[in-house]
Design a protein around this nucleic acid. Structure first.
Lengths: 220, 220
DNA sequence: CCGAACCTGTCAGCCGGCTGACACAAAAGC
DNA sequence: GCTTTTGTGTCAGCCGGCTGACAGGTTCGG
C-alpha cells in the first residue's frame, strides 16, 4: 500500500514514516500542502495521513479541495488531543477517520491494515440495487439512467445501508456511524435524513422495521 | 387422490361422485355421518367433501369432532347459496374451503386439482424457523422443546407467514385470507391477532415493515 | 342445562415513526 | 466582501401500529 504523509512536525513525521516503512508499506513524506498537491497530481496513493495545521495552509481546506476535485483516496486526519472540533470538521470535510496525537504507532498499524482490508475486499465498487446503480468509489447513484445528487450526510447514511444489504440497522447504529463522539444529535435527526433519502431515491428504497431500525428495500 | 363424499341429496351425490371418478380420482359416497365416521376410521382419505345438513346430524359438528380428534384431512364444505353463516362457521370449524350449491362441476375439478397440488408440493410438513419447530400437518408449534398452543385464528395467521417465509404480507392480504367475503372485520383486528401471536411466540417472531405489512422475523 | 373458561372482535389511549416548516450555519456565486 | 443558495438539525403535529381492557359469543366440563 502506498501512503502519503503530510506532517510538518519533523520528529513525528520521521517516526511515522519509519513505522509505515517497517510495516512494509510504501510511504512519501511531505511537510507542506503544495508538495502534497504535487504528489497527488503525479502519483496514485492508497491512503493520505493528513495533519491539520500546516505552514502553508489548513489541512481541512486541502481535504475539501481534494474531495471537490472528485478524489476518493482514503484520508486519515491527525489531530491534537484537545481539538474535538477539528475531528468533527475533518470528518465533515470528507475524512475517513482520524487519529489523535500523540498516538501509539501500533494503533497506526491497525488503521493501515483496516484501510487495506476495506479496499482490497471490494475491487469492484459498482453495485446494482433494484433500479439503483451505485458507485461506491465515485459516490454516485443513478436511478434508471438519471443521476441522483446526495448530500454528504445523505451519502453517509445511504452507504451504511449499501454496505449491509438485507440487514436491519438500528437508529443507534446509524447515529454512531454518522456522528462522532462529542457531536451526537438530539431529536429525530436520523428519521429526518431517512425521509430525505426516501424523497430522492423513492419511498420503497428503505424500509422501516418497526421498533428495530431500517433496511434497504427490495432486498427480497 | 382418494375422496370421501358426504351428501344426502341422491341426485347431486351421484353427479358429483361420477364427476370425481371421471376426473380419475377414487371416490366413496355416503349419505350419513355415521357411515362417514366408519369410512374415515378404516381408510385414509386425501379429501372430504362435506354437506352441512345431513339426516343424522350437522356437518359442522362432525367437522369439529374430526379436528378435535387431530385429523388434518382437507375438508371442503358444501353449502347452500344463501347460507353465509354456514360458510363462516364451517371455515371456523376447521374447513379448508367451501363450495356453494349449485356449483359448476368444472369448478369442483379445479378445487380437486388445487388440493392435490397443495399437499403434493409439501411432502414434509416439518419446518424449523429459528427456535420454532412447526408441524404444518399437525398444526403444532414447539419453541425450544416447549409446546405452544395457538387458537384457530392464531394458527391461520401464523400459517400465512410460514408459507411465505421472508416475504412481506400486507394486512389487506391477511384479512382476505382469514376472513371470507361477507365477514370482513372492522377496526384493527389483524393488528390485535399479530400482537397475540407475538405474545406466544416471542416479540421478534414477526416483524412489522411500516406502511407495508408483516414478515416472519429472523428470516435473515 | 348451567356456569366457567376460552376465543374473538372492538375500542381507546399510548408509542414509534414521518414529514413540512423553520432557523441557522456553511458553501457557492458574483 | 456581500448576497444567494444549499445543507443540516430541531420542532411539532400527524399517521401507522401496538396492546390492555372489555363485551359478547362459543365451547367445555360437571
Amino acid at each position: 500500500m502506498r501512503v502519503l504523509l503530510v506532517e510538518d512536525d519533523t520528529v513525528l513525521g520521521a517516526a511515522v514514516r519509519d513505522h509505515i516503512a517497517a510495516d512494509s508499506h510504501s510511504v512519501d513524506w511531505v511537510t507542506r500542502l503544495d508538495a502534497a498537491t504535487d504528489h497527488l497530481d503525479s502519483a496514485a496513493y492508497d491512503l493520505v495521513l493528513l495533519d491539520l495545521m500546516l505552514p502553508d495552509g489548513q489541512g481541512i481546506a486541502f481535504l475539501r479541495s481534494l474531495r471537490r476535485k472528485g478524489s476518493v483516496t482514503p484520508v486519515i486526519i491527525l489531530t491534537a488531543m484537545d481539538q474535538i472540533s477539528d475531528r468533527i470538521n475533518g470528518l465533515n470535510a470528507g475524512a475517513d477517520d482520524y487519529m489523535t496525537k500523540p498516538f501509539d504507532l501500533s494503533e497506526l498499524s491497525a488503521r493501515l491494515s483496516s484501510v487495506a482490508r476495506r479496499y482490497s475486499g471490494n475491487p469492484n465498487p459498482l453495485v446494482t440495487l433494484g433500479e439503483l446503480q451505485v458507485d461506491l468509489a465515485a459516490r454516485t447513484v443513478m436511478c434508471s439512467g438519471r443521476s441522483i445528487d446526495l448530500t454528504a450526510r445523505e451519502w453517509a447514511l445511504f452507504e451504511a445501508f449499501v454496505q449491509r444489504p438485507g440487514q436491519v440497522i438500528s437508529k443507534m447504529q446509524l447515529e454512531e456511524r454518522l456522528y462522532p463522539f462529542g457531536s451526537e444529535v438530539e431529536s429525530n435527526t436520523i428519521e429526518v435524513h431517512v425521509s430525505r433519502l426516501r424523497k430522492k431515491l423513492g419511498q420503497s428504497a428503505i424500509e422501516t422495521v418497526r421498533g428495530i431500525g431500517y433496511r434497504l428495500g427490495g432486498a427480497r
